[in-house]
């Protein structure tokens, strides 16, 4: 855990939490009621108190009757479920700094922000399937657990986002926000999986993290390019002309994802692994309307 979420990260996150109120569920957040209004509307249910819950919502009458702590839940104050899908395939280990680092720091930060806002957080580790899954947890007390889970996700295997997101179907319980962190350099594509998330009533946010070498490769000469995930090799003479074509293809690829997301009402943000997570949370994501 120390590898990604050190003391400095924590300190910066505390600072962030003062400036960022909560996760905005896509552009259609109007469909969900504001939690501030929710406190004054009708009662819906009880649930067990867990450490970290706001004790102002404890039903002291029920406690008097049963000597157990229950929280009063209101229909309109239905909490948000944030599903964080982290790409843990081999390609994420690549780059300087590795894409993996920013991805996990962002996942940790989102989890913190969500848990601080009394939202639930579930985390999935994706490679060629949903290999690791942390069911939804709630409350600040769960932060350590989430971070442990995020930091402990092992890297390896190929990317198959379609399969991984399809695997999530078995855990899905109701609507939520799905944050997919990946480089999306998946030969099998990812669109079907994303569409499936939408089918599961998830507000989808795509965060693409690419290394500087992905964005602007500095290779020259006759090279046998070996894919870090598949081990497949491609012999190529890299010239200035080819690099130009590569950059054009990358731009086309990015534009393609953006178009797809815009069509389906999703958020898409491309990030370089050299960005600091702080910058991303404070500047890039609010500008894109993901945080507010």
């Amino acid at each position: 855990m120390e590898e990604f979420f050190d003391q400095e990260f924590l300190a910066r996150l505390e600072h962030l939490s003062l400036q960022t109120r909560r996760i905005r569920a896509g552009q259609h957040s109007g469909e969900r009621r504001s939690p501030h209004k929710g406190s004054s509307v009708e009662f819906a249910d009880f649930r067990n108190y867990s450490i970290g819950d706001d004790f102002r919502h404890i039903d002291w009458n029920a406690y008097a009757r049963t000597e157990k702590l229950f929280l009063k839940l209101f229909m309109e104050e239905q909490d948000l479920l944030l599903n964080i899908f982290i790409d843990v395939s081999q390609s994420m280990e690549w780059g300087d700094p590795p894409k993996n680092r920013l991805v996990r720091q962002l996942a940790g930060a989102f989890a913190y922000l969500a848990l601080a806002s009394y939202d639930r957080v579930a985390v999935g580790g994706c490679s060629d399937g949903l290999d690791y899954y942390l069911p939804p947890v709630r409350g600040r007390s769960s932060l350590a657990r989430v971070w442990d889970f995020v930091a402990g996700l092992p890297i390896g295997g190929k990317t198959d986002l379609n399969q991984a997101l399809r695997d999530y179907g078995q855990y899905a319980r109701g609507p939520g926000v799905a944050l997919v962190l990946s480089d999306f350099l998946s030969p099998g594509g990812f669109r079907d999986g994303i569409k499936y998330l939408q089918y599961l009533k998830q507000e989808v946010i795509l965060l693409q993290v690419l290394s500087p070498d992905d964005l602007n490769p500095r290779l020259r000469g006759d090279l046998r390019l070996v894919d870090s995930e598949t081990g497949e090799a491609r012999e190529v003479t890299i010239t200035a002309g080819l690099l130009k074509v590569y950059r054009r293809k990358l731009a086309e690829f990015t534009a393609d994802i953006q178009g797809f997301c815009r069509q389906r009402g999703m958020s898409f943000i491309q990030l370089s692994s050299t960005e600091s997570f702080e910058d991303v949370i404070l500047r890039i994501l609010p500008r894109a309307g993901v945080l507010g």
């Binding site: 690549w94 480089d183 090279l223 046998r224 491609r234 080819l242």
Partner: peptide, 21 residues
């Protein structure tokens, strides 16, 4: 020509670029 081996994160975009030329 004989190529020098170079490990990269993904050949996904390179494949697309090379397909053209």
């Amino acid at each position: 020509p004989r190529y020098q081996e170079q490990l990269i994160s993904s050949t996904y975009l390179w494949e697309q670029a090379l397909r053209d030329i």
